[in-house]
Design a protein around this nucleic acid. Sequence first.
DNA 1: GACACTTTCCCATAACCTCT
DNA 2: AGAGGTTATGGGAAAGTGTC
Length: 266
Amino acid sequence: MQPIQADQLIPLSISDRFQLIEEYAKLVTVPAELNSDLHRAYQIAAVLTPALPNFIQYQIQVDISHGSIFEGDRQSTAISNECEQFANRFIDTIPSLVRSPAEMEVNPRNLYELCGAAVFVESNSISRQLSRPMGDLWETIANISPYAISPEKDFGIKITGIDSVLLRQGKGAPVFVQIKTQRNTLTGSQAPRSRSELEFHQNRLFAAAFCTGGNWTFSSTSIRRACGAEFWSMVGLDYELLKFHVKQMILKIQAAYIDFQQKTPL
DNA sequence: GACACTTTCCCATAACCTCT
DNA sequence: AGAGGTTATGGGAAAGTGTC
């Protein structure tokens, strides 16, 4: 059977792309030694890999024809838009994070609620609610670049452990990437899983969006790591610009939160 | 088909263990 | 003793699964 071609995928809707990839994936033979949880990921990667260089070339052409993201302040605008949207979505949810003393007493979700410590309840909730979806934001921002694809957004399909696939300038083979927020985002107990999810891809990368969080808590003899500028430059994006907009975003959220608190005293 | 329960997936930090 | 890796602990959303 012929491998799938980029030209076949490009004209399709996301759900038709999913269907087509699914059909091909079923036919891929999986190495016997591979963990069964990863069979599907292997099959999808095998189907996608030969098509991706041309698919990404196509994205690059489209980017150029629409006024490239790499020209003028377009990159800044694009990153800013994503951060704005994220901030606005989050700010909208702030009122729903509040729990009444009665709710907390009847059905405490954690120790702070059990004790009715409203300030701790809120600060705990805010930081949880914020840090989790930010993980998704980095994927979205990476996908601004025509050098990256998101399996989910571009093909409607999930590859276990893979957040983004990118084609480095001048290189022929796509790189399968797992993106975290910080170098220490992964705890040790999760590292073996990340290792196995990445290892079987011919080209793979473990990336941290920011070079914060002290030392890496992920290591592997065969899987490269990159954080901050080293990672973002692979898809042509500017780390300094990203940090600038993320700072605006977080401060905006904080200001909205303080504002909300003042309007609704404890 | 609605709802409840379970698993998976995002995340953070401290403590501990082992090897050099 | 210090570094690097592993384990324990903890929150919450979303997706998946089972049941009535």
